[in-house]
């Protein structure tokens, strides 16, 4: 059994967290940790090693973009892939997130296969053929 991948989901909506955790449960060998907002996310990040981060933008206390900036500025986690999942669908928002260092930008409502595919791509997990 290979070493499991670890994923941090930062999302203030319990419903979206539940939906994401449900979707990510279909990725083999992936352990998911949940965080309520950016600050909680940074706390969880400091206490463990994560291979990928999925974060919302609009959150109380610390939003997703600030979280991206903080993660990219942290030498320990600066290379961790980050996926933004948000209701903000404009190109400006997308560009801003990508400029800050996000690796992917997915708009809500999410489609589970799209999220799964992006996570596998960034974690370099081989997708099933066909």
């Amino acid at each position: 059994m290979s070493v499991p991948h670890t994923c941090l989901v930062v999302e203030d909506s319990p419903m979206m967290r539940q939906l994401l955790v449900l979707a990510l449960s279909r990725v083999k060998n992936l352990r998911v940790t949940e965080a309520d907002d950016g600050v909680d996310g940074l706390r969880k990040l400091a206490g463990g090693k994560f291979d990928i981060i999925i974060t919302d933008i609009n959150m109380p206390i610390m939003d997703g973009l600030k979280l991206v900036k903080r993660v990219r500025g942290d030498p320990t986690h600066k290379d961790v892939p980050i996926i933004i999942i948000t209701t903000e669908g404009s190109n400006e928002d997308r560009q801003r997130a990508l400029q800050l260092g996000a690796n992917a930008y997915i708009t809500k409502p999410i489609q589970a296969p799209q999220v799964i595919a992006k996570v596998k791509e960034l974690l370099k997990i081989e997708a099933p053929s066909g």
Binding site: P14, Q18, L19, L22, A23
Partner: peptide, 20 residues
């Protein structure tokens, strides 16, 4: 496979919606 993916997504969404 695509149909099952879609059904799974539907079930997941309905499950979460009902739960919430």
């Amino acid at each position: 496979f695509a149909e099952i993916e879609q059904e799974l997504e539907s079930f997941a969404n309905l499950y979460v919606a009902s739960f919430q």
